[in-house]
Design a protein around this nucleic acid. Structure first.
Lengths: 204, 204
DNA sequence: GAGATAATGAGATTATTATCTCATGTCAAT
DNA sequence: ATTGACATGAGATAATAATCTCATTATCTC
């Protein structure tokens, strides 16, 4: 008897939770900055229940899955016939920049709420921020993975993730006040410099 | 006659404004995440007046002057007898990292409110985020300024500002989930790679 | 299917945040 | 000093966000 062990009523709860997160993501993608009440309504769930699942909009929005149209590594590199890591990473950068430009508001909102949540939440464990670009960067660097070695490879991936991601874009724009063109120029130069330096390291 | 031209009652207004900003900064440095009402109270100014000057806490906190104990370029490089740009930039990085570690909460809060404000404010002109590290970076690179040329110098400064600043630290920690030690390793490597590449460019 | 019980919904309640109103105090020019 | 214009303060009011209560509904076990 007894099938698996669905907790007590886990399915029901997981479904409600998922509905809330999806509704939140939907609203955010429409460029709205929804309150918890709006999300609940969009999910056809009562406020009270929504508050039972998430203590604040911040908690909700920092987990919402923004299924942004990030290209698959396969698609991205299929047509490009090069093994040049710099060219490949620049390709990733261009693709990511494209996505960021399209979803700028939504991505920024997610980041803000995520940071805000960390401020309020204090010590509790945080939901991991999704990081969709790292796989792309790793795929771009695949041709030189062996040559670099694990440690150097990881370090380069992390460095590039800082340069290429959403957050980097926001820093360039909001903090350093560069326009898109300037920001792109800096990023492209950084990509060349960083990949070049990593390869140089490997020669020694 | 008539002394200068104090607007109509500009001094008075400037003073209240300043009092509000200072009170906000003070509270933030104490690690609090104050509401506009709390700031007003701390500044001994009524809510109503505070709202006359700033439409929201975000607006207030994104302008609050966090006079963080950032070292002066002079002091920082006085004792170090080197012209090696990499060593000097690493010195800046260490100093900035120190400050960031001390004021982590306050700096993060300022960043969050600043981004939040941009979200709400929409199109209006934003108060420029203060950027205290760029002068330090420029001072560190002074020995190679001529060699690099203006364009290359600026580009390098911008790239390093991304790596070294508060925002970069937050990205490393919150998004990429690196611990302090890992983050530092990546930053130091990036500094070497970027400065090295810029110098290399200059040789051609 | 019936009973037990967890999950939900709807509305009331409270807390927090923002705005409005008008009386009072202050500044500057006469 | 008097006047007029402006800034301020205090409290009322409105708007929003969060919490609580309890009746209802849905799911699980048998």
């Amino acid at each position: 008897m007894t099938t698996a062990r669905p907790g007590l009523r886990e399915n029901q709860r997981l479904r409600t939770r998922k509905d809330l997160l999806e509704a939140a993501a939907r609203l955010v993608r429409q460029g709205r900055n929804p309150s918890l009440e709006e999300v609940a309504e969009a999910a056809m769930i009562s406020r009270a229940t929504a508050y039972r699942y998430f203590p604040s909009v911040e908690a909700l929005l920092s987990e919402a899955p923004l299924d942004v149209a990030m290209p698959e590594p396969g698609d991205l590199f299929a047509r490009v016939g090069t093994d040049d890591p710099v060219a490949r990473v620049k390709l990733v950068d261009a693709a990511v920049a494209q996505v960021i430009a399209n979803e700028a508001t939504a991505l920024r909102m997610m980041l803000v709420h995520s940071l805000q949540f960390r401020l309020k939440g204090g010590t509790g464990q945080m939901p991991a921020r999704q990081n969709r670009r790292t796989p792309l960067i790793e795929a771009a660097l695949e041709p030189v993975r062996k040559r670099l070695g694990a440690a150097s490879f990881d370090r380069l991936v992390r460095a590039l993730a800082l340069v290429i991601g959403t957050e980097g874009a926001i820093v360039f724009k909001d903090v350093l006040e560069l326009d898109d063109h300037e920001a792109k120029a800096v990023r492209q130069w950084m990509i060349g410099a960083l990949v070049g330096a990593a390869l140089q390291d490997a020669k020694d």
